[in-house]
């Protein structure tokens, strides 16, 4: 959506520009606990996206009027680095897009985190898009999930997120920047994998009900892989130390 200039041919002979099948993810790699100062953190590379997520807290929510006496509040900031885009220098500060994405991201984790454990506290989530190549909000959510879990904050589930879109009448998974710019629809979705409930749903463009359903199937299938990578990232540090320990025996 929103691309300028001549529309490139996004699908040739049933393959996408980067050679992927319609329901194929870009390469995804996540590493947990990459930042020393944060309570939890994650670094994620997804296609050409490079994303850092960090979690601070739980700590006393300040200013005081933001406190909820019954549960913790989540504060979330999604932000794109001014050098992150292949286009020119990005405007710094929180634009309207970033404010909206921060809001919908926060709402994903308000469902996933056991907030009742920390009344009066805040949990801060910072998502920094260091390099962007389409689908940064879903990359941010997938990374923030790992950052939250790595901080030890109790969670009901480990949400993942991925987008689907449409080129012509073909539904495709995990749009990159060019596909995103020239697609006929874009639908980022976040899912709680244990129940398959939808935590984030946005969409614009043009979709039929059938295409929506097909997109959701693509997302749930891809989710198995994304969830597995999230879990691998979380357990990897402990597996290496366990291996070392066992080596000494």
């Amino acid at each position: 959506m929103g691309g300028s200039g001549e529309k490139p041919q996004l699908i040739k002979e049933g393959k996408r520009l980067d050679g992927r099948a319609f329901d194929q993810l870009r390469p995804l790699k996540i590493e947990a606990n990459v930042l020393k100062n944060a309570a939890g953190s994650a670094y994620l590379e997804w296609g050409n996206n490079k994303v850092l997520a960090a979690v601070f807290g739980p700590k006393e929510a300040l200013p005081k009027h933001t406190q909820d006496p019954d549960k913790a509040v989540i504060k979330c900031r999604y932000s794109m680095a001014p050098f992150s885009s292949i286009e020119g220098h990005g405007r710094s500060g929180q634009n309207r897009r970033a404010i909206e994405i921060s809001k919908v991201t926060r709402e994903v984790f308000e469902k996933a985190v056991m907030l009742d454990y920390f009344p009066g506290n805040e949990i801060e989530i910072f998502i920094e898009i260091l390099q962007s190549d389409g689908g940064t909000r879903v990359a941010g959510i997938t990374a923030a999930s790992v950052a939250l879990a790595s901080s030890g904050i109790p969670m009901y589930d480990l949400p993942y997120a991925v987008s689907v879109g449409k080129v012509g009448e073909d539904v495709i998974l995990d749009l990159n920047m060019i596909e995103d710019n020239y697609s006929d629809a874009d639908m980022p979705v976040a899912i709680a994998p244990r129940s398959n409930e939808v935590l984030l749903l946005q969409m614009d463009g043009s979709l039929t009900k059938e295409q929506f359903s097909k997109g959701m199937e693509y997302i749930k299938n891809a989710g198995k892989f994304i969830s597995a990578e999230q879990r691998r990232a979380l357990s990897a540090p402990y597996e290496t130390s366990a291996a070392k320990y066992e080596g000494k025996q």
């Binding site: 709402e107 469902k111 939808v198 935590l199 043009s206």
Partner: peptide
């Protein structure tokens, strides 16, 4: 469908 937006913490 032209746009969708889910809001709040429920699912």
């Amino acid at each position: 469908i032209r746009s969708m937006q889910k809001g709040l913490s429920g699912s």
